[in-house]
């Protein structure tokens, strides 16, 4: 299967927020009435029940004009996903579509992924089971993997009338993004394609009108050394050490007993 991505061209976005509503609709997520934030932005950031938030950002342009920058912010589906690496239960994985999804059966709600995500895209939702007991699961945009499996587009892409959110062939969309970038450079001199290579790219690629920093995105996110140390070394070694210690103890027990029999006459010497 050819690789697919979601391309978000913020310069085509007119801020209507149909993406937010269609997401809630398809994924049947509850509403969250937040306090007044002093701008058009409805939610301060992505939450466990609001998987995409349209951010509104006002800034003066160098030419004296004004820019009101909109961004459909949701999980970027990193190729090297910090959440996936952070998950101690291996509940987070990549699908055949390149989307990063949480296996809700395996997720224990520890929240390590929440801390690990550099984009604030994954959060813990609290639910109540039928016995009235609370439990937590990590929740985030699935890039509508369930729709993709049925040959549909992500709900946000379907709802987007300006083509600011499109889903399709990776190579095609990336090359169209380059063309679009050339087109908008005059209006937005700092425009760029955000597909950070430090994490081997993302499955949601952005055409941004300004530097990533303006949108609160890390300039050049990388897989954290701490994560490598932890998941690739500490945990395997830790498990090994647990095993080794256990083996040593068992070995000691057996050897001591064996040696005891062999040197029964010298038993008194033992520092038992």
């Amino acid at each position: 299967m050819a690789e697919t991505i979601k391309l978000v061209d913020v310069t085509k976005c007119d801020g209507c927020r149909a993406c937010m509503v269609s997401c809630k609709n398809w994924n049947d997520l509850p509403s969250e009435m937040e306090d007044f934030h002093g701008s058009y932005q409805s939610h301060e950031k992505i939450t466990a029940n609001t998987w995409n938030v349209l951010t509104f950002n006002e800034q003066e342009r160098k030419d004296g004009g004004l820019d009101w920058l909109f961004r459909h912010s949701s999980c970027l589906h990193c190729t090297e996903a910090a959440c996936e690496k952070a998950c101690p239960e291996n509940a987070i994985s990549h699908t055949e579509f390149g989307s990063v999804v949480v296996d809700y059966d395996t997720c224990v709600g520890c929240g390590y992924c929440v801390q690990a995500c550099g984009f604030d895209a994954i959060n813990l939702a609290t639910y109540v089971d039928k016995n009235g007991k609370e439990f937590r699961k990590a929740q985030k945009c699935t890039q509508c993997t369930d729709r993709l499996e049925e040959g549909l587009q992500p709900a946000c892409a379907t709802a987007c009338h300006t083509g600011a959110i499109v889903y399709g062939d990776k190579d095609e969309l990336l090359s169209s993004a380059e063309d679009r970038l050339a087109q908008i450079k005059e209006r937005y001199p700092n425009a760029n394609i955000y597909n950070p290579q430090g994490i081997s790219g993302t499955n949601t690629v952005y055409i941004l009108a300004d530097k990533p920093k303006t949108y609160g995105l890390p300039e050049n996110p990388k897989v954290a050394l701490s994560q490598i140390v932890w998941k690739d070394y500490a945990q395997p070694i830790g498990k090994m050490m647990l095993g080794a210690t256990t083996m040593a103890v068992i070995g000691s027990f057996i050897a001591t007993n064996l040696n005891k029999k062999n040197h029964s006459s010298e038993g008194d010497q033992s520092h038992e």
């Binding site: 801020g15 927020r17 509503v21 509403s31 969250e32 009435m33 306090d35 007044f36 058009y40 409805s42």
Partner: peptide, 24 residues
């Protein structure tokens, strides 16, 4: 964008209401 006319319909629909929940 988020509300319609006197809001009778949109302020009664949670997913729209949450987008603009306050008079400003």
């Amino acid at each position: 964008s988020e509300h319609w006319q006197s809001g009778a319909m949109t302020r009664s629909q949670e997913w729209l209401a949450e987008l603009v929940p306050h008079m400003f």
